[in-house]
Design a binder for these strands. Structure first.
Lengths: 155, 155
DNA sequence: CCGTTTTCTTGAATGAGTCAAGTTCAGCCA
DNA sequence: TGGCTGAACTTGACTCATTCAAGAAAACGG
């Protein structure tokens, strides 16, 4: 968990003014990875008192644009934010409870980009989203009867 | 492009009643892969005349649940639907114009699932979304000066 | 410390998608 | 072929994440 001074440095390094809402948002996202906007608003308000939701939306956008935060948006979920940036890691989403965890790409360098020119597209990024069951939910489910494995799920 | 009779067979095979809105939606999605709901509503209305948006939403949900359609939801876009189901292929999205194309996974069997048990999650599906520029947009862009390749984009 | 520009506040608006109550119609059965 | 029943469609209101806009406050260079 970085210190406030480090957050301040991050902001200045990105040519962003240092404000209390921005520090609080950075703090909140670091403390609660994959939190949605509403949760972040809550945490920020615990920290600072009254802060408009618009301010938090603005800050999240500014920090995301500056590359200090990363926005993820799993289908069926509202936008979520995390502070781990720059490595383009991936995510697992639990189908049951919706919890999200980080996943490093286990395969070599750029496996999912192997055929880098599909249909004439120039591809610069591959985003992988894994779906499954988290440890809690899978233990509740699989210990009963069937492990219903959905359709063909090739990568 | 399947015939109406084939769409009817598809619906009956899925234990769904055959209705004009459902046939029209199937037709529309087959004719316009990756179309959003609003576009589909428009196409269906060209075909049938007045149809409520609610009906189209209901039909899209029913057909998706039945596995006759697949819903995709790229970040920053509304929901889109396609009729190619059962093979879990992937998609490329153009950062510039937003056009979407299908991508078969070029690598072996289930590459993105290679480490199938991250953080104790039981993973059953890997969804890959490629970002880049479509042929049209990349020719307009790259012929000028720099091919600004975004940050580290490992798969 | 002052002025400029960015950021924050306030309050309204947007728009995809959902909910709910009532009507219509597909498909089963006589 | 005609009626029955539940599913599907219509209508209209509603939700809720997110954005827009105008004015007030605050950051920071000079």
């Amino acid at each position: 968990m970085p210190t406030t001074a480090e957050f301040e440095r991050l902001l200045r390094g990105a040519d962003l003014r240092v404000t209390r809402p921005r520090l609080a948002v950075l703090d909140a996202v670091h403390a609660h990875p994959h939190a949605d906007t509403d949760t972040i608003i809550g945490v920020v308000r615990e920290d600072l008192g009254a802060v408009s939701h618009q301010a938090v939306y603005d800050v999240l956008r500014a920090l995301t644009t500056a590359g200090l935060l990363r926005r993820i948006e799993p289908p069926g979920s509202v936008a979520r934010y995390e502070a781990r940036v720059g490595d383009n890691h991936h995510h697992v989403v639990c189908r049951s409870c919706g919890v999200i965890a980080d996943v490093d790409c286990a395969v070599g360098a750029a496996p999912c980009l192997s055929a880098s020119d599909h249909h004439g597209f120039v591809i610069d990024e591959a985003e992988v989203l894994y779906w499954g069951l988290c440890p809690d939910c899978s233990s509740t489910t699989t210990t009963s009867t069937t492990t219903s494995s959905r359709k063909d799920s090739r990568g």
